[in-house]
Design a protein around this nucleic acid. Sequence first.
RNA 1: GGCCCGUUAGCUCAACUGGUAGAGCAGCGGACUCUUAAUCCGCGGGUUGAAGGUUCGAGUCCUUCACGGGUCACCA
Length: 514
Amino acid sequence: MVPARRMRRRKMADKKEDEQDTKELKKSDQVIAREEKKNKLAQEGVDLFPHNAEISHQVAEIVKEHSSDSEEDLKKRGVKVKVPGRILFMRRMGRATFFHISDSRDKLQVYIREDRVGENLYHLFSCIDIGDIILVEGGLFKTRTGELTVLAESFTFLAKCLYPLPEKWHGLQDVELRYRKRYLDLIMNPEIKQIFRLRSGIIAGIRNFFDERDYIEVETPMMHAIPGGALARPFKTFHNALGIDLYLRIAPELYLKRLIVGGFEKVYEINRNFRNEGISSEHNPEFTMLEFYEAYCDYNDMMDMTEELICGLCHDLLGKEELTFDGRTISLKRPWKRLKFKEALTQYSGMAPSRFDNKQEIITFASDLTGDKGPLSYGNALDVIFDKFVKQNLDHPTFIMNPPKEISPLAKADRDNPDEAERFELIMGGMEIANAFSELSDPAEQRVRFEQQVEERKKGDEEAHPIDEDYVEALEYGLPPTGGEGIGIDRLVMLFADKKSIREVILFPLLRPK
RNA sequence: GGCCCGUUAGCUCAACUGGUAGAGCAGCGGACUCUUAAUCCGCGGGUUGAAGGUUCGAGUCCUUCACGGGUCACCA
């Protein structure tokens, strides 16, 4: 029995669907024309959606292997190909047609003429639309203008495209449509594929870097009973069978350190974090993070490794030692600048060092900057001033070292300055790229830090870290000295790909459903 | 969340101070067997994001809403 309430809800849902259906029934002349062709082909017994395709080459392979061959070479060798691709451009000239097919890397011209393929097949070809995916069989030659071309002997359909593609010259420009229908963006704007190839290359390069250093890659839970490891608001969900609230993880940190306790000396994880916060050109609610932890290290070692990792990636993927970002040049020449948090503050805010000793004045100053957002702690106030005055000025990679201990509840206190944390943030292109520390390993100290966070939470800081007793217990078994770091992969890709918006480096960024 | 901008044909874009919504590509029909943003001739295609309002008359002005972009804030 379906409860009455649910019935009502279903009826409403049905109604909504009906409305959508009628909307979709309004087909453009373009769609009607394509469907008519599809039906005609089906009537003639053509399989428009076959189960497989017997191919000999990819488009890019042919272009790579034969672009520089001369017409005589091609004729002599008589290279035959069976190549699949999507049709993007077409020039019909009566009994002959030129068109281009493309794969993910390149495009290739095809020449089909009635006297080669026969009247029947050429007639079938008249039912082809731009956007269809076909398999072309034929031999290679060069046109009068020297373009490598397949002279078609035959072709078969691999998929019919039932909608018109965006405009061939301008591509798909509408930013919203590009994200919502990313497949169209990828079909029409080949340069977009380069961004995601680069992204894939960065991630592969990172894996290679850590694998070479005897790290193991691990996967830790993404559903947490206590969302920890960062200061951020989580997404909440519910597990039916267990009857408990769960949170999508805001960071893998606490689990990775449990693994160090367990005896893995070097671990890394590349995966998604979820933070229930605003969306901006630098923030997507789900984002990809690399976190790595190495026993018998501290944050100084992490800085060295970070330089090595990012410089290596840049060298391997871009073949240079600098990045171009938003019209600026970011030099990656080592060693990178290392600046104390407080030095950065005085240097960029223009405020005398002594003013930072007056905690109340700093808090008032920062509160004015944020507007009326409730009371700030001294540490948070310094952080506000840092974000406002310092961060945007740091283009070249800079390690901002030793922020206040009170905003770093998982980091060891600095060995010489008990109010500071042995922690750094790496800033590049005005963005925070990495965050690392000498991991706090003293369980008693960790409990005190958690308790301080609970106090902050009571005062209204929703991002303060909740206490995680199970994690403290893990520390009580002994965490060796450990350096740990998180690197925001999306932002790193932004820098490498010279994209100012994080949505340009995420295939399917979060958008409000239409 | 504040402010600014945008939303017009399948796509890319026009439409002056309010006065019959246009072009290119794409589509359809025709010509065309080395074209490449092919060319030439002809044709069709619109709830101007939605709902109200002002006006004789609204794509254009006003209000509200939806979605997106930018920016600031929140936020790592």
